[in-house]
Structures are given as structure tokens and as C-alpha cells.
Design a protein around this nucleic acid. Sequence first.
DNA 1: GATACTAACTAACGTTTGTTATTATATTTG
DNA 2: CAAATATAATAACAAACGTTAGTTAGTATC
Lengths: 189, 189
Amino acid sequence: MSTKRDQIIEQANKIFLAKGYSGASMRDIAAAVGMEASSLYNHVESKHDILQTVCFEIAQEYQAGLDEILDSDLSVKKKLKNIIQLHIFLAAKHKDKMVVFDLEWKHLENEQLVSFKSLRKAYEQKLLAFITYGIEQKKLNPVEPKYMLYTFLSGLKWVNYYFQQHKEKDIPTVSDSMITMYLKGFYNN
Amino acid sequence: MSTKRDQIIEQANKIFLAKGYSGASMRDIAAAVGMEASSLYNHVESKHDILQTVCFEIAQEYQAGLDEILDSDLSVKKKLKNIIQLHIFLAAKHKDKMVVFDLEWKHLENEQLVSFKSLRKAYEQKLLAFITYGIEQKKLNPVEPKYMLYTFLSGLKWVNYYFQQHKEKDIPTVSDSMITMYLKGFYNN
DNA sequence: GATACTAACTAACGTTTGTTATTATATTTG
DNA sequence: CAAATATAATAACAAACGTTAGTTAGTATC
């Protein structure tokens, strides 16, 4: 059973998604939930409160997922596969929330913005260390590690949008394709 | 020499970038240019006018660039390389504009929104046909063409952000790395 | 030197914004 | 059943929004 607060956050995300954080009004959100704007404040502290709840919930799940993979003693190849699958799994699980997490975090303010950025930075740093190690061990191709990090994360982002419209049954197909592309590239050498 | 209109559009883009389209006010833009909000209307029809100018300018350059490559009689491999370089070149050329183009187009309205979406769709369709052909010819690895399309385009997007902070001299290094990653993958098989 | 044009200003418009205070109505608890 | 709590609605707030109107100063044209 989902609380009213959950429903509000869910509807808010759909509207943030369509109109952007600033373009979405509390009245829009209230209408989607079926109440007046002022009544939202019985369940939610502020508009920022909604955004912040989503951003940090997702960030935390990413962190936990990555840590579990990197702390294991699997091979570089298997870790890479698991990280790809983590991103796809979270995209399918959170749908709309992922896009808000991805695009609207910049509307966080003050300590929350600082805190969010540093979580993000930490995530990238861990992944960068993994990539750098992989290259040193000659398991990964020798390109500038930062570029590989960015291309990797960037290339995975479309799944956040994909699972808004597609069912979870696509997860294995998407996973397999992504793993093939990342491991072997696009070109048939 | 850049006209006042160009200056307004340039500053507006920086603010769209930082605050999003809805979060950016005409007063913000005016302040960045050094005038009052109402004076902007001597050079610009509306806030939407600014957004639309950017979105369609960039869309047109993408289209022209892609057509030239696909209409040539180069090999699949060489075409792929050229498309990668096209995206990197445009990212370095347009900096802030690219991000607005990427994220804020959804705030276009009516016919402009419809028109923009169909340009975007056409671009993806051309690229999809190219990929499908490449797979048929066994030049590209056999994965679902749509997934390859999305991963390809998505993976290139980070360069839009990268060249906001980095100089154009990085273009060759970034290009080489991207080509290696797309052609050979990340893993050192 | 009068005329027209450009581009800036101040002031204001009607709306919409996030949010609060107050009040009414359910729902839960003692 | 009564008291207390949670949740809704109405009304209103000051601030900010995109945009228009009216005006003024500077520049170019004849």
C-alpha cells in the first residue's frame, strides 16, 4: 500500500518529467493527485522536498549497487557486465524517477545541491578507479580513462527513457545487447 | 561582429543551461546582457523565439552534416568514423547551445514542437537505416539496430557538456578515443 | 534642420507562482 | 460517545512571471 505522500511524489515526477522542475507547478501536481495545491502541504514540506526525496533515493541505490559489485572479487569483465546490468535494472525499476534524477537535480539548493554533487562525484571516482585499473591490467582498451568513463555512463542513459514506455521483459534483451556492444564494440572486426 | 540579437541569444543559452528554460526569466537574460527586460523585445519576439532559434539552427546543422556523410560512397567503417567526428565537431563549435538543444527543446510549442520532433525522428531514421544496412552487410555486430542507435547517440552526448569547459584542441584526442571505443569496444579481447 | 528609425528606459498589465492561515470534515484513539 | 488527530478545502499573501504601452534619447537620411 502506498501512502499519499508516495502518490504525490509519483505524480510530481511525471510532471517534472513533462515540464521540467520549474515549469511544473504545485497546482499541476495537486490536480494530478486530485486535491488542491495547499492540501499537498499536509504530506510534503515544499516543492523542493519532493525533488530532494527522489534525487537522494536514487543516488543511494546507485551507490549501494556499485559498491557491492566493486567490492566483490569478480573479474574485470564480470564486474563490467554487472555494472551495465545494474544501470539497466535501476532504470526499469524507477522509470520516471530516473529521468528526474538525471535532469532535474540541478534545481536542488544549498547544502542539498552540494551534497548531491559530491555523491555524484564519488560515484564517478569509484568507476574511474575501476577503469584505470582495468586498463593497467590490460583488460580494457588503452584510451584516456575519463573519456571511457563518460562514454560508458553516457551510453547507458538512454535506458532511463526506454523503460518509461517498455516492459520489464525487455531487460534481458537490452542487457545482452549492451554487453555485446561495450565488450566488442559496434564494428565487426 | 555579432548583433545584439546574437548576444541576447548567447546569454539566454547560458541561463537556460543553468536554470532550465522555465527557470530562466527574461529579467535574468536582460541582466546578463546589460539592459532591462522590456528592451529585449526590440531584438527578440518572445522568450520562445530565443529557444526556437537555437533548436532549429542546431538541428539543421546536424541534418546537413549527416546527409553529406551518408550520401557519400565511403565504407561503412569510414562513415561511422565521420559521424562520430561530426557530433564532436558540432559539440565543440556550439558549446552551451548544444545542451539547450538537447534538453530544452521540449518547451517548444504547437507547430514548432511538432516540426522539431519530426526533424529529430528523421535524423534517427536515417541513422537507423545505416546501422541496419551495416549489420546486414556483416560490417557491424549483430545486435538489435534500435539499441545500437540509442547507445551510439547516447554515448556521444557527454561531449556536448565536455566542450563547455575544455578547449577545441582536445578534439583530436576525444575523436580518436571515441572511434577506438565504438569500433573495438571497451574490453581488450 | 526637420523626419524617421532604433534602441533604450520606466511603469504597469493581468496571471501565475509557492506558500501560509484559517476553517471544515473525516478518521482514529482513549 | 468524546476528544484528538489527520486531511481536506477556501481564501489570501507577496513575489515573480512574460509581455505591452508610452516615452525619451541618439543616430541616420533627405
